[in-house]
């Protein structure tokens, strides 16, 4: 297995081993309990490389990350997914990569996580609602998977489609959004080394409420761009219309980059509350990942392309 070293991350950003271990010891109990409660026969994730992109920030607790979720497929209250996601069956699961590519392929989820070496990435996550967390994801760069299917010249965008099954996802019984949930990225955004397909968090398999068994993580965009429980990735020529764009085009644009200067029509995006903190902190341009991603948007009016 070849693991590309993360050259763009200064070593100061990597969580120290002692801090990591302490945190891990505290979590093991809770995580083990949660895993037992979900499915007793969960297959273990393959070994992974420890790595960090967190800016040296402390990750939120397992309880915070798995108990406070926006996942409308399981209800609109942030406590709903933790309560209602037990009906989701993350195995067996097939992820199809198709569309404008020479070698479309359907992957079994476990084959996928064996074929693409997992690494830990500690990312900030900023929700469009004005709160944020720091999450130790376990995943692999989407770029590797996309390269493998050999996108054709017509592939300009990538569309992500979430599972549509009201039996497993009770929130889909109400037409809150136009199901299935869809999201999209420009091809270069999807190929960016920070863009991750995550299969785990805190060293364990992704809990259902966090988008099991496989989800997108795009850390410089608002959280809703990171589609969960993905069944299909399509390479397309036209800019996809995401579920939120379709629901309220005035409020949600295609790019949805974290931007403290461009407000949501109904609220300011200048500050955010980090879950677990009392005072709000200023929101950073591109959620603090500007150095890595700003060049993707050179010459673009980010007010217009919100």
């Amino acid at each position: 297995m070849f693991i590309k070293p993360a050259t763009d991350i200064p070593s100061s950003e990597i969580t120290s081993e002692t801090v990591y271990r302490e945190r891990r010891r505290f979590l093991t109990g809770a995580a083990a309990l949660a895993a037992l409660a979900v499915t007793p026969a969960q297959a273990a994730l393959p070994p992974y490389k420890k790595n960090a992109h967190g800016g040296g920030e402390t990750a939120n607790s397992w309880e915070e990350i798995t108990g406070y979720n926006n996942f409308y497929e399981f209800g609109t209250d942030k406590a709903d997914p933790a309560k209602l996601a037990h009906g989701l069956k993350p195995r067996p699961w097939t992820l199809a990569i198709e569309g404008a590519c020479r070698k479309p392929k359907s992957w079994d989820i476990d084959e996928l996580t064996r074929a693409f070496p997992l690494e830990e990435r500690i990312y900030r996550l900023r929700c469009v609602e004005g709160w944020s967390m720091v999450i130790p994801w376990l995943g692999f760069p989407l770029a590797g998977l996309l390269k493998q299917v050999e996108p054709t010249g017509n592939a300009k965008y990538v569309e992500f489609v979430t599972l549509h099954d009201p039996q497993q996802m009770p929130g889909q019984r109400r037409a809150i959004l136009d199901w299935p949930y869809r999201e999209g990225l420009r091809l270069d955004e999807a190929m960016h080394p920070l863009t991750l397909l995550a299969a785990g968090l805190y060293g364990r398999e992704l809990p259902n409420q966090n988008g099991a068994p496989i989800r997108l993580v795009v850390p410089w965009k608002y959280g809703f761009k990171s589609a969960k429980s993905i069944v299909k990735i399509r390479l397309v020529e036209q800019q996809p219309v995401s579920s939120w764009m379709k629901a309220t085009p005035r409020e949600y644009g295609f790019y949805s980059n974290v931007n403290p200067e461009v407000d949501h029509p109904r609220w300011s995006q200048a500050k955010e509350r980090r879950i677990g903190e009392f005072l709000k902190r200023p929101t950073l341009m591109f959620n603090g990942y500007g150095e890595q991603v700003a060049q993707l948007y050179g010459g673009m009016d980010l007010r217009k392309n919100f």
């Binding site: 109904r266 609220w267 300011s268 200048a270 500050k271 009392f278 005072l279 709000k280």
Partner: peptide, 20 residues
């Protein structure tokens, strides 16, 4: 108090920004 911590400029902006 809890949400804005008496940050009056931010509160004023919020009121103008958020009609609700």
């Amino acid at each position: 108090w809890l949400d804005q911590f008496f940050d009056w400029p931010a509160i004023l902006k919020d009121v103008l920004k958020r009609p609700f």
